[in-house]
Design a binder for these strands. Structure first.
Lengths: 339, 339
DNA sequence: TTGTAGGCGTTATCAG
DNA sequence: CTGATAACGCCTACAA
C-alpha cells in the first residue's frame, strides 16, 4: 500500500505532474477548475508530499539538532521544552542528543548532526569541553549555530546566556546583606565558563564589601551532584565551623548541603545561610526552602531557537548574518535558607 | 561551497558514479586499486553521503519519533534518556514532541511524525486521551509503533508497561503491614489506564486485609501537580482526622502532601504514613524521606526502543511481526515516611 | 570489473 | 494556463 504521489494524482486526472504540483502550492497560474479538481482529489487520497523528496530538492529538512549534556536535569529539560515549543511554532522538529558531559561524545554528536544535514544546531557545552575544533567545523560548514548557557566564548556564533558573574555577585551580596561575615563557595568544575564566572562574581562581592577572600573557603565540584553537597557540607562545617554563609553553584548540590545540615542538626539559616543557583523546582519544596537565583531556562530555549531561525532564514535568503548574543536577566529569590 | 558528491569523485577519478558508489559500499566486484583510489579521495574530500538522497532512495530515515506528555518530568526525562541512548547505539536519531497532556496536540504530533515519515513511533498517551483514531492511523499506515506506560490497552501494538495494579497493591499492603487502619488514596485522573489500575490495586489490598473500602477516602487529581498534594493533604486531614495512611499516585503530589503536613505540624510517619509512586529523585531528598514504588524508567525507554527496532527490522525484511508486551518489575522502597 | 540506465518524488525553468 | 524536461544525489538491476 504505497503513499499517494503527485504522479498518481496527475494520472487519474489526466494532467501533468507539474500542474498538480502548482495547483497544490497555490501558484497563481493554474485555472480555478483544475485547481479545484486537484485539491479535491488530493484531499480524498490523503496526499502529503514525500518529505524525503522535498528535502532532497530543497536542501533543507526543517529539522534542527540539539546537543546538551543531559536530558535528566531540571535546567536542561526546561530549555528543551522552550526549544521544542518555539521550533514547533515555526514548523521545525528537534532531534535531541546528549553529550553526557563528555567531550568525545559531544564531538561525535556534532558529527552525527552534520551528516544528518540538519538545518541548524543548538548546543550547550559539556563540562569537559576544552577544545573547540568540532565547533569550528560547524561554523566552517556554514551551518546556522547557536550556543547557550555553557558556551565557548571565543567562537563567533550567536549565544544565549545569563550574566553569571553578575548573578553570582548578587547572590553573594545577598548573603552579606543578611549579615554573613565568612562566606564559603562551592563552585563548579574548572572548565565551564559559567563555573568560572560564578566564582569570579563571588570573589568580587567579597572584595566590594571588604571581606577577605580565602582560597580555603572555595570547594570545587567534580560532578555537580547531590552527594557532593553532602560531602562539602561536612568538610566546611568541620574545617571552618565559623563559616556563616555558603553560595553554591547549583540547587542540586545545595540540597545535598541542606540534607547534611538537617541530619546533623546544624540550623539553617540561623547557624549558616545558604543560597543556591537555578531555581530548581525542588528548592521551594525542601525544608528549609532554599534561596536561589532564578534562571529563565524556558525562555533561554525560546531565544536560542529564535536566533537560530534568524540565521537559517538569512542563509536561505543569501543575506549576511551577524551573530548576536542575548543576555537574559536573573533574579534573587529569597526563601527560608537565607532569612 | 558545496558538499562532495559521488559525481565529483567519479569525475576527478575519471570513472563512473556506479563504481564509486560500489567502492565505498564494499561491493565485492570492484578492483582493489580502484577501490583504494576512491576511498582515499573520498576521505580527502571529506565525503559523506547526502542523507536526503539516501532517505529518498531507501525510503527510511534512521529517525524515530517520540511523543510524550511532557519533557520536564522526572519519569519521562528518564525514559527519553533510555530511548535516546538505545537508539543511538543502533544508529537511530530521535525527534521528540510533547502533547502537553492534550489529546488535540497529541493528534497533531502524530500527524507531524507521519508526514515526516519517521521509521517508527514511540508514544505515551496524554491524560486526556480517550479516543484512539490517531493511533489506529499509525497502525493502518504500517508504521512500527510502541506504546509505553500510559497505553491504549485495546490497540494491537507492542507495549512496555509495569503492572500498575500489582505495584499499587503492594504499596497499599506496605502501609497496612506498617499498621495503618484507615488508608486514603490520592489517585490520578479518570482516563489514564494506569491511574485506574493503581486505584484498583489500592482497593484490592484493602479487600484482602478486610479493611472497608470508602469512596470518601479517594481523592482525584486533575493535573497531578505539587499543589494538589497540598490541597488534598488539607482536605484529608480536616475531613478525616483519623486517616493514618495515604497512598499517592505519584511522588510529585506526595511531596506536596508532605510539605503541607510539615507546615502544619502533622507528623509523618507518626500521625500519618505516606507512600508515593515513581521513585522520583527528590523523594530521597525531602524531609522526611518519601517511601515510594520504584519504576524502572530508563529501562522502559531502552525496551521501548528495542521493541520498535524489532518491528522496524521485521518490516524491512518483509517478515511478519507480532506485537509484544514487556512488563517490567517494580519494587517498594521504604524510607522514613512510612517507617 | 566497470558502466549504463532508470527511478525514488518533488520542484523549477522555460517553452508552448 | 499547461506541460515537457531537467535536476537534486544516490542506489541497483542489468548489460557490456
Amino acid at each position: 500500500m504505497r503513499e499517494t504521489t503527485l504522479k498518481q494524482i496527475a494520472e487519474t486526472l489526466g494532467i501533468s505532474i507539474t500542474t498538480v504540483s502548482k495547483a497544490l502550492k497555490n501558484y497563481p497560474d493554474v485555472s480555478a477548475s483544475t485547481k479545484k479538481a486537484v485539491v479535491e482529489l488530493a484531499e480524498k487520497l490523503n496526499y502529503t508530499p514525500n518529505t524525503f523528496a522535498v528535502n532532497l530538492r530543497t536542501r533543507e529538512s526543517k529539522t534542527i539538532g540539539l546537543i546538551i549534556p543531559e536530558v535528566v536535569h531540571h535546567f536542561f529539560s526546561n530549555v528543551i521544552n522552550g526549544i521544542i515549543a518555539e521550533a514547533e511554532k515555526n514548523g521545525y522538529l528537534v532531534i535531541i542528543l546528549q553529550s553526557n558531559e563528555s567531550i568525545e561524545l559531544e564531538k561525535k554528536q556534532v558529527e552525527h548532526l552534520l551528516n544528518k544535514r540538519v538545518d541548524g544546531i543548538i548546543l550547550s557545552l559539556s563540562n569537559e569541553s576544552n577544545d573547540d575544533n568540532h565547533i569550528k567545523e560547524i561554523i566552517k560548514r556554514g551551518i546556522p549555530f547557536v550556543q547557550f548557557d555553557k558556551i565557548a566564548k571565543l567562537i563567533n556564533s550567536s549565544k544565549v546566556i545569563i550574566n553569571d558573574q553578575k548573578a553570582a555577585f548578587e547572590a553573594t551580596e545577598h548573603l552579606i546583606k543578611k549579615g554573613c561575615k565568612k562566606i564559603a563557595h562551592i563552585r563548579g568544575p574548572v572548565n565551564p565558563q559559567n563555573a568560572i564566572d560564578r566564582f569570579l562574581g563571588y570573589k568580587k562581592a567579597l572584595e566590594k564589601y571588604n571581606i577577605p577572600f580565602d582560597y580555603n573557603l572555595v570547594y570545587t565540584c567534580k560532578d555537580v551532584v547531590f552527594e557532593e553537597g553532602i560531602e562539602f557540607a561536612k568538610q566546611i562545617t568541620q574545617q571552618h565551623p565559623d563559616v556563616d554563609g555558603v553560595f553554591i553553584i547549583t540547587d542540586l548540590v545545595a540540597v545535598g548541603f541542606i540534607a547534611y545540615c538537617n541530619e546533623n542538626n546544624i540550623k539553617i539559616p540561623e547557624k549558616i545561610k545558604v543560597i543556591g543557583f537555578s531555581n530548581w523546582f525542588m528548592s521551594k519544596v525542601i525544608t528549609p526552602k532554599l534561596s536561589t537565583v532564578d534562571q529563565p531556562s524556558f525562555e533561554m530555549g525560546v531565544k536560542s531557537f529564535d536566533l537560530l531561525l534568524e540565521e537559517m532564514n538569512a542563509r536561505k535568503e543569501q543575506k549576511p548574518f551577524y551573530p548576536k548574543t542575548i543576555e537574559l536577566g536573573t533574579s534573587i529569590i529569597e526563601r527560608e535558607s537565607s532569612k
